[in-house]
Simulated assay, not measured.
Amino acid sequence: MNEPLILAAILILAAGTFSLRVAGPLMRARFELSERTRQLLSTAAIVLLAALVATATFTAGHTHAGIARPLGVLVGGLLAWRRAPFVLVVVAAAATAAGLRLLGVP
Rank of each mutant, 00 (worst) to 15 (best):
R69V: 14
L40C: 08
G66D: 07
V47D: 04
V73K: 01
F86I: 07
H64I: 12
A44H: 02
G61H: 11
A60M: 12
A56I: 00
E32I: 07
G77H: 02
R36Y: 06
G66E: 09
V73E: 02
A68H: 02
G66N: 09
F31I: 08
V53A: 10
L71R: 05
T63E: 14
I46P: 01
R69T: 10
A80E: 06
T55E: 14
G76F: 04
L41F: 09
I46V: 14
T59W: 05
W81P: 01
T43V: 06
A84L: 12
T55S: 15
L79K: 08
A45F: 00
L49W: 11
Q39N: 11
R38Q: 13
V47E: 03
P85T: 09
H62N: 03
T63P: 00
G72W: 01
T43E: 10
T43R: 13
L74H: 03
G72Y: 01
Q39P: 02
A80C: 09
R69C: 00
A68L: 06
V75A: 05
T59S: 06
L48T: 09
L49I: 15
H62A: 07
L52Q: 02
T63K: 05
L78M: 15
F86G: 07
A44G: 05
T55H: 14
L41C: 04
A80F: 05
A68W: 06
R36H: 12
F58W: 14
T63I: 11
Q39G: 13
A50L: 15
A45W: 00
I46T: 13
L52H: 07
F86K: 08
P85G: 06
V53F: 06
L40D: 08
H62S: 10
G77C: 09
R82M: 15
S42R: 06
A60E: 15
L40F: 14
A80G: 07
G66M: 07
I67C: 05
F58I: 04
Q39F: 11
